[in-house]
């Protein structure tokens, strides 16, 4: 493998990992507050569809990103209303959100299939991007890749050294106790779910405006689900999400690697790799059940209603 190919593979790995980072960070915050939202896939698809539509209609990719974030948040409000206010089963509600989001995005985007837009151009960071190798791999990306690093840093810092991080964790570990010391449990959970929705929407925008600047039905191809596995794999730690997402990114672009090495393989068979990798990861996580239990937010998935 020559050096340039190696550079390109690392570059593509970072690109492919970015939507997973965004979704998984959002879901991590949500799960830290004790809410399991299985609707990621639906929110990502809505973000992708509405982001693309807004970009086409307004001719402005930046507005597309804002529309995508709003779309993700609107979907997450639906989830929050059912799962937090109406204390419905979180698993079923999340599934419903995915089914609904898949249907709604397919419906709204039907007229935009096959349309091409310019998408969001890469923004090489001046000077830094001129460094050989590192400049290409790290500093020649589009703005959303840099944004994913900023979001990572913010979330890492939030849970490491802020009161907000502690509050969210308190709500996810023991909502009764949090309520007793005056933390507004419902509000914190709403906030965490909304944040997750915004991140999923942003990831959708990344897919339809940057990664492959187009819209097609179901284009997220299970990334929302892979991100869910990633959060568990990362034991709810932001730095491990970053690492895990790039590992998955690498698995998803194996076809590039193999082509570089001169192998021919069916693209459909190679497309199975990230899903197979997820299953392996799930097995590894489960084999260390005791450790997984330690890091799982205690109240995860359990509905909570303050007693009147």
């Amino acid at each position: 493998m020559d050096f340039e190919l190696f550079t390109n593979i690392l570059f593509a790995t970072l690109r492919t990992g970015t939507p997973l980072i965004l979704i998984a960070l959002g879901e991590m915050v949500c799960e830290k507050s004790g809410v399991l939202n299985l609707g990621q896939e639906g929110m990502v698809l809505m973000g992708a569809a509405l982001g693309f539509i807004a970009a086409v209609v307004t001719g402005h990719a930046g507005l597309g990103i804002i529309a995508a974030i709003l779309a993700g948040m609107m979907m997450s409000v639906l989830f929050a209303f059912l799962a937090v206010t109406l204390v419905s089963n979180q698993v079923a509600t999340g599934l419903a959100l995915t089914i609904f989001g898949t249907g709604l995005s397919g419906f709204l985007g039907a007229g935009y299939v096959g349309m091409a837009i310019d998408g969001i151009a890469p923004f090489p960071i001046p000077l830094l991007s001129d460094i050989p190798f590192i400049g290409k791999v790290l500093f020649s990306h589009d703005p959303l890749v840099y944004l994913s690093w900023v979001m990572f840093a913010l979330i890492f810092w939030c849970f490491r050294s802020t009161r907000l991080g502690l509050t969210i964790r308190a709500v996810g570990e023991n909502p009764e106790a949090a309520n007793a010391i005056g933390i507004p449990v419902m509000k914190v959970r709403y906030g965490a779910i909304l944040f997750g929705g915004a991140m999923a929407g942003l990831a959708g925008a990344y897919l339809s405006l940057v990664y492959t600047p187009m819209w097609s039905e179901g284009m997220s191809a299970g990334r929302g689900w892979i991100a869910l596995a990633l959060v568990v794999f990362a034991s709810w730690k932001a730095e491990r999400i970053l690492l895990g997402a790039y590992l998955f990114g690498a698995a998803s672009i194996m076809h590039l690697v193999l082509q570089g090495l001169g192998f021919e393989a069916s693209p459909n068979l190679l497309a199975m790799l990230p899903y197979g990798a997820t299953i392996i990861v799930l097995v590894i996580i489960a084999s260390d059940a005791a450790k997984a239990k330690l890091s799982t937010p205690l109240a995860l998935g359990k509905p909570y209603r303050p007693q009147v």
């Binding site: 639906l78 059912l82 419905s88 089963n89 079923a92 509600t93 599934l95 419903a96 959100l97 089914i99 609904f100 989001g101 898949t102 249907g103 709604l104 397919g106 419906f107 039907a110 007229g111 039905e217």
Partner: peptide
């Protein structure tokens, strides 16, 4: 668009929950 199907299915499940 034919994808109305998925939309109606999703709504149905949501309202049911």
């Amino acid at each position: 668009p034919k994808s109305l199907t998925g939309l109606f299915q999703g709504m149905l499940l949501f309202y049911l929950l």
